[in-house]
Design a binder for these strands. Sequence first.
DNA 1: TGTATGATCGCCT
DNA 2: GGCGATCATACAG
Length: 190
Amino acid sequence: MDKHLAGIDFSAPSAEVARRLIGVTMLVDGVGGRIVETEAYDRTEPAAHSFNGPTPRNFSMFGPPGRSYVYRSHGLHWCLNFVCREEGHGAGVLIRALEPLAGLERMRERRGLDDPRLLCSGPGRLCQALGVTREFNNLALDAAPFALLAPEAGAAVAVLAGPRIGISKAVELPWRFGLAGSRFLSKPMR
DNA sequence: TGTATGATCGCCT
DNA sequence: GGCGATCATACAG
């Protein structure tokens, strides 16, 4: 597949891909919105699932870039990543929050909530809102059910960086990225 | 506004 | 047997 998607080169380092994904619109079966928060992971640092090599859970992280890696977190939530770098490297970007724009009614049904700020503001929440489960693992991001749309040309996207959330290793790396001023972040940027 | 806790599964030591 | 790339709820201040 073409490694360039929504104007982003997915063979680039995960931190660069994570930064450039802010402002991109992501849809799953037509439901989704603008990406406002991401985190980068790379096999070279111990917070990444790929750090210890391939396992049955993380094998899609070692496949070609531009595909999905979906895993179960804490036994009950799903989390969505976009694979990057070259095939076999083991890098990805965790999608942590969206600004809901399309399919709001579907999201409300799935989440059992009305407040738009609680629909997609967290990696587990957005997967529930978009209906992402294990069946969506290791799929190409340039084909249905996924769709990625670049921001409008010339649109200014102000991105802030900070430490990643919920990890205990490599906590110092500033590999969390967020849209400045967004009300849809899982937590404010520092 | 903040801190604690339970739910519950796959992988690692 | 322990520990997460989490979330919702319960409580304290």
